[in-house]
Design a protein around this nucleic acid. Structure first.
Lengths: 349, 349
DNA sequence: ATGAAAGCGCTAACAG
DNA sequence: CTGTTAGCGCTTTCAT
């Protein structure tokens, strides 16, 4: 309508301007094949002068490689996923790829639509945190896929990247037990994904490995939000009373909720109750006390997933399952319980 | 290598399968032009059977519309921008567009490269928060651009969306003044953008409008991170001593830092000092006390920017500058100062 | 109501 | 070292 310039210059305009064929232009542009120094100079000058920029659509159509990747995560405005997305973004940029990001909100139908869009865009590969562990959604996808998150093992046909949740759980429990806690409340997710199962399974196994009784590891559930963590914590406190000296939540948001709920219930953290989270997001350091947590390598997971995907695209075929270690970040929400050790001695207080 | 299927089916495969020409297939696919009901049925069946999905690259090349938009923001892992990105993403999805998201880290050079990639991808339009207020970077961009953030007015040739920072500043000051504060520390950014200028200018103007002296509005600076807010707060407390009864930071992260620093300095918030932020990000509710703040409509800014951009792409030409209002979110970090009113009475304490 | 043909901008043989 | 040619998969006249 208001055409600032007539239209984007094409390779042909450049060819005309420099008096060569478009093949020659393509050659200097791609750097593949030899061209006379003087010719190259003239072409480069014409590129400059015309403001030519490669049409990526045409390039992709012709070569069959869009040099674009897809990332489908639950929610870009969730700090955990935002950190991971940033890692993927940076790696993609470093490898001269573009990244199409979509949020599924844990909704299988939205996920399906996003995957379809990605296929239509002919992305070279897809990084996906599956909305559900029901596989099958990916079946019709030709492009390489890397699965991120615990669900990885539900998709044996794809490479995957996940943090070592089981190890993280052990780390957390060891940390809590070392501090003297023997009655620990668990706040788990209530979704249907393997992450949830693994959290509680490993916690119970490790608890028993320490020789403690399962009844001293009560559990409640939330949906990974702060509010749900608050609610779960409130129920747990009500149900367990003073026996429970610590709480371990499956993610930092729920742990933050637990800190808030503890305060509301008149419990001082960590004096009356210790609280530990899992994720390592920055917001965990805003609470009072700062949240002690098990840090997952979010950014690196994004980088690694992208790296694996690119390797697969380039035909370094093998599917690989990367498991990145977690580590404890000590802040201030965990301390020794006041009246220490076994529930049996409780009356002595 | 391991070719699950030979290759993605094309419109020609569908045509062959249904015994019509590709033109006819294109017609039923686009819904444009009349086709016999029976023919349509056969084509649709063939589409189903073959698993055909439109090649978006070819579509874009042919039509000159990629149906893809670009979003360039400072940092996707920053909650403020993540919220905004989510708004843009949702709106784009609702309008059947894809969104290419890039983080510039406030670096003009990275921004330049991102814009170039976007142009090469032939996006239909770009939403941008400029890394600097130096305009000119956009000059060679053909596609419509919508600028987000205060810098909008530095780019008079483009539509823009911003929150009403001046109004937000007035709201905050009024809130603080109403609570009884007469000596308020300001924590501003130290960048070179108009947002920074506007914050302090409006604060001072409004302060004087209330008839107070400029010397009772001391200022320090940070770079919008928690740590920098902590540092600025520490300096401010040192410098102003007990005279200062409240602090107002230009964003929530620095305000969170101020809360942390106040505690470290042995100041109880809000008893000894009130703290107010600006943004409204969720993390502000994690601190103790919860951060009272001026909420900016982050998500809606993303939605609105996308809406404006799409309108412009569709030729509803006029450039428009949307200014969205802020609102106060009261939590608990603001209260009446202990020894109220004027600095003059200070000695009576 | 349907088809044939041209062409979007580019790369990749293939000649010379 | 350089040019000619043939498509990539799709939409869009223009015929029929």
């Amino acid at each position: 309508m208001n055409g600032k310039r007539d239209r984007q210059p094409t390779i042909i305009d450049v060819a005309r301007l420099s008096g060569v064929s478009k093949t020659t232009v393509a050659r200097v542009l791609s750097g593949i094949g030899a061209v006379h120094a003087e010719t190259r100079r003239r072409v480069e000058e014409a590129v400059q002068q015309s403001g030519y920029e490669r049409n990526h659509l045409a390039f992709g159509l012709r070569t069959g490689r869009s040099r674009t990747l897809g990332l489908v995560i639950p929610d870009i405005s969730n700090p955990f996923w935002a950190d991971l997305a940033r890692g993927a973004q940076d790696k993609a940029e470093a490898e001269k790829r573009s990244l199409l990001i979509f949020s599924s909100d844990w909704d299988a139908e939205r996920e399906r639509r996003h995957l379809q869009v990605l296929r239509q865009a002919r992305v070279d590969g897809i990084i996906l945190n599956p909305a559900t562990d029901d596989s099958g959604l990916l079946r019709q996808t030709e492009a390489p896929v890397v699965v991120i998150g615990s669900s990885g093992e539900r998709f044996p046909e794809y490479s995957s990247v996940r943090s070592d949740v089981a190890q993280g759980v052990r780390l957390a429990l060891d940390h809590l037990i070392a501090a003297g806690h023997r009655h620990i409340g668990l706040v788990n997710g209530r979704d249907r994904r393997v992450a949830r199962t693994r959290f509680v399974t490993e916690a119970q196994a490790h608890w028993q490995r320490h020789g403690f009784d399962a009844s001293a590891l009560p559990m409640d559930e939330g949906d990974y939000t702060v509010e749900s963590g608050q609610a779960a914590m409130t129920r747990l406190v009500e149900r367990e009373g003073g026996r429970m000296t610590a709480v371990f939540a499956a993610n930092d948001m729920m742990a933050v909720g637990a800190i808030l709920a503890a305060r509301a219930a008149g419990l001082a953290c960590p004096r009356d109750i210790s609280i530990m989270g899992m994720d390592g997001v920055e917001a965990g350091s805003f609470t009072d006390p700062g949240l002690t947590t098990v840090d997952k390598p979010r950014y690196d997971m994004g980088v690694e997933a992208t790296r694996l995907l690119l390797a697969e695209i380039d035909g370094a075929g093998d599917i690989v399952r990367t498991v990145l270690p977690c580590r404890v970040v000590e802040r201030a929400s965990v301390a020794a319980p006041r009246r220490s050790v076994s529930p049996a001695r409780k009356k002595s207080a």
